[in-house]
Design a protein around this nucleic acid. Structure first.
Length: 94
DNA sequence: TAGTTGACCGGAA
DNA sequence: ATTCCGGCCAACT
């Protein structure tokens, strides 16, 4: 199981209506400092099986989306029930 | 093999 | 609150 596969696994396991951050994924993998690596992998991934639109930045902003832009990402998330306030996702930190 | 790139993060001004 | 800067890591050329 390499880094990339772990990222895919975790991203696929994100439940509908929820979002994860690049940081949290990095932590879940076991490499808390690899948040940038996570972003790299997801950005290069084009598999529709992987809901990479459910991954946002740790400050709640969307980050990027190479499959339609931020607007698209917002639409998808809202459609799934994620609460978004003015370009900010509700991360419900504890 | 080495250098560059990027959908990032956290701290400082 | 916003902007700037250095650090970190994986993928690509």
């Amino acid at each position: 199981m390499n880094f990339k596969d772990k990222v895919y696994q975790l991203t696929k396991s994100i439940p509908k209506g929820k979002v994860a951050t690049y940081k949290s994924i990095a932590v879940a993998i076991g490499s808390p400092k690899s948040s940038r690596g996570v972003a790299t992998v997801l950005s290069q991934n084009f598999d529709p099986e992987i809901p990479c639109h459910r991954v946002v930045r740790s400050d709640g902003t969307l980050g990027g989306y190479t499959r339609g832009g931020e607007a698209k990402k917002i639409k998808l998330l809202k459609r799934e029930g994620v609460v978004i306030n003015k370009k900010r996702v509700e991360l419900t930190p504890i």
